[in-house]
Design a protein around this nucleic acid. Structure first.
Length: 675
DNA sequence: AAAAAAC
């Protein structure tokens, strides 16, 4: 293997194959564009208003299309049922009739295999089927269809004209250039893409759509393709290659893929594309209630913000409106944003429940549901809230909506819970170049509780002496408790190390300020609780220190995944002592599989029968870090050989393991959108 | 046991 990885990595392929649980730790999916700034969005909006030729103020793409499409058929152009109504897909796109609105809950629940829906057509989107052609020629999607008529071509044409004078929206401005200067070349050269051939992929489920090799192979629509170009994504990442066709085919999905593998784009592209091409349903219009078509949930506010920013770039000039809602911030501003129209709502659970209770948001029209960090969303703390949102509000049931779950780690118990939300889903596990194995050097040191601070000080002094301290080498220190975070931050500052902290006891303003201050290098040390463990994309984190180790090995995986990103190497140091003995075995196993040096004392700990057991013990089986629990006989209906389908009443069964799929055609030397 | 997530 001629990878540019540390010499300790003998064979990436076999290495990944030996991995037995779902954990991939890797590098950043740097948007490549910090663009689509507020000013651009403003210009989008204003152009929209100028060119929008509608009888009422359009609030979003789909609303607008609906209005424009129905303006002839409907007497008032817009029907405003006082009561919100859910129109089942098979009744949509018909001239408005006097039929009473059908409530979601009472809608004839198609069986979960959704036979009659658009998705039944092979390869067709569940929602997009019949209208797709119309959508392309009539609505233009950016003018590919030539000069077809219709208001949308006018609008698109207008935007195209606008682009002559409008600055390239995704071009970095000077500030961004400076910020990203250091990344520059390294971003694109840190990865050997030939190694794509070695990325293992495992899928299971019925009729898994084959992966695509290029974005051009997928009909995402011109506007989205343009944004992909603006993002300088040349080639889909492995998770995108597999996820996008699955998603476009209307299938539910449980995907095991590292944050930073292009996951956000993997679920955003199909959603945006689907909304643009999908059937244009008349959304009900409560005076204050909005009806998003897609819902993306994530476990922390900062992660929701990050997803929102990313999604907004992808949706640029598509007319698809993305809004974020999370707690800790004034709700009024978020309400105003919502009132201006929302197609995709990105939210944290608490605030969403609030909005639902206030009836400011209804989930009746949700076609797409995506859970990021899905295993966290379904763990003990979150599960009731998520169930409430997904099962007990007005969201269409599984099988009617399309559901996609993503995480880097997917314990089997959580998979079982998650299957409640899914219908005949496909399980996807994508290994990757740049797992923890390759880019992150993991160290474990035995440090007694009372010695932790002085030991930390030693590390920091060494870093400072190394020059690995400051703007381009940030240090992220994880602690167990919020109090501990505050006191460690204080102590660091006292000792001459500019630090800040992020945890749930701080105000949202303080949290965001801390993150900014850390990212910019003003305080190159961030002391964090697990609030910062997942998903956050912070460039230049050179060192993750587990001052307090987590109790769960999966959390460890997520934490150290904050470094070793963007194709750079990273260092992860853990302070281990007697208190962490329950983690010993899983930690030793993980490190061993990652070809990390396992200290003899840790190996001895791990070998002690009383330690390392329990829930942290790793169940063998998965080669890639994720394995479909339906294939595990202990979770199935009993069958033998582990090939049993946990179907929950779904017909069909069996598996298609298309692991050969990764041979499916990564051309040699391809350039990818990986970073 | 702690963390996260609404007011």
């Amino acid at each position: 293997m001629q990878l540019g990885f540390p010499p300790t990595t003998p064979d990436l392929h076999s290495n990944i194959q030996r991995r037995s649980k779902s954990r991939f730790v890797g590098f950043v999916f740097l948007g490549g564009l910090e663009g689509a700034k507020a000013s651009d969005l403003k210009s989008e909006i204003s152009i929209f208003l100028i060119l929008g030729d509608f009888s009422i103020m359009p609030t979003s793409w789909a609303d607008s299309v609906a209005n424009s499409a129905e303006s002839g058929a409907s007497n008032s152009g817009v029907s405003r049922p006082t009561r919100s109504s859910y129109v089942p897909p098979h009744l949509r796109n018909r001239p408005p009739s006097s039929d009473p609105p059908v409530a979601a809950s009472s809608a004839p629940a198609p069986d979960n295999n959704r036979p009659g829906y658009g998705g039944a057509a092979p390869g067709g989107s569940r929602w997009g089927g019949p209208i797709r052609e119309l959508g392309r020629s009539g609505f233009g999607g950016g003018g590919r269809g030539g000069g077809g008529g219709g208001g949308w071509n006018n609008r698109t044409g207008g935007w195209d004209r606008g682009r002559e004078w409008e600055a390239n929206p995704f071009e970095k401005d000077e500030k961004d250039e400076i910020e990203e200067q250091a990344l520059g070349e390294q971003e694109n050269t840190g990865i050997n893409f030939d190694a794509y051939e070695d990325i293992p992929v495992e899928t299971s489920g019925d009729n898994v759509p084959p992966p695509v090799n290029t974005f051009a192979d997928i009909d995402l629509g011109d506007a989205l393709n343009k944004n992909i170009q603006r993002c300088k994504y040349v080639k889909p990442t492995p998770v995108q290659r597999h996820t996008i066709p699955i998603s476009l085919a209307g299938r539910d999905l449980m995907a095991c893929a590292q944050t930073g593998s292009g996951k956000t784009a993997a679920f955003c592209f199909p959603i945006i594309s689907g909304i643009m091409k999908g059937q244009v349903a008349q959304r009900p219009r409560g005076p204050r209630t909005v009806y998003p078509l897609a819902l993306i949930l994530s476990p922390t506010r900062e992660l929701s913000c990050q997803i929102h920013e990313e999604a907004r770039k992808f949706a640029y000039q598509t007319g698809v409106k993305v809004v974020v809602a999370y707690g800790g911030a004034p709700i009024n501003q978020q309400l105003r944003e919502l009132e201006r129209g929302v197609d995709i709502l990105v939210a944290t659970p608490g605030r969403l429940v609030d909005l639902l209770e206030r009836a400011r948001v209804s989930l009746q029209m949700v076609r797409y549901l995506a859970l990021d960090e899905a295993d966290r969303m379904l763990d003990m703390g979150f599960e009731p809230q998520i169930r409430r949102i997904v099962e007990q509000m007005d969201m269409p049931p599984r099988g009617v909506r399309q559901t996609m779950l993503f995480s880097a780690t997917f314990p089997k118990e959580i998979q079982r819970l998650a299957s409640d939300f899914l219908s005949n889903y496909i399980f996807l596990a994508v290994g990757r170049v740049g797992s923890s194995t390759d880019l992150i050097v993991q160290r474990v040191e035995y440090v007694n509780e009372s010695d932790k601070r002085s030991h930390l000080m030693d590390l920091l002094h060494a870093q400072r002496a190394n020059g690995t301290h400051g703007k381009q080498s940030l240090t992220l220190v994880f602690v167990e408790t919020k109090k501990g975070a505050d006191s460690l931050e204080h102590w660091l500052c006292l000792n001459g190390f500019p630090a800040t902290t992020i945890h749930g006891d701080r105000t949202q303003q303080e949290r965001e300020q801390a993150l900014r201050s850390f990212k910019s290098g003003i305080t190159p040390i961030l002391v964090a609780t697990d609030v910062a463990a997942r998903g956050l994309d912070i460039p230049h984190v050179a060192h993750v220190i587990n001052f307090d180790l987590p109790n769960d090995i999966d959390d460890y995986v997520h934490r150290i995944g904050r470094t070793g990103r963007a194709g750079k190497t990273g260092l992860a140091t853990a302070f281990f002592n007697e208190n962490n003995s329950s983690l010993a075995r899983s930690l030793a196993d993980l490190m061993g599989e990652a070809n990390q040096e396992v200290p003899a004392w840790l190996a001895r700990y791990a070998a002690r029968p009383s330690y390392g057991g329990g829930r942290n013990r790793r169940s063998g089986g998965g080669r890639f870090g994720g394995r479909d629990f339906r294939r595990d006989s202990t979770f199935g209906r009993g069958g033998s050989g582990g090939v049993d389908y946990y179907g929950r009443g779904n017909s069909g069964g069996g598996f298609t393991t298309s692991s050969g799929g990764y041979g499916g055609g990564y051309g040699p030397g391809v350039v990818s959108a990986w970073d």
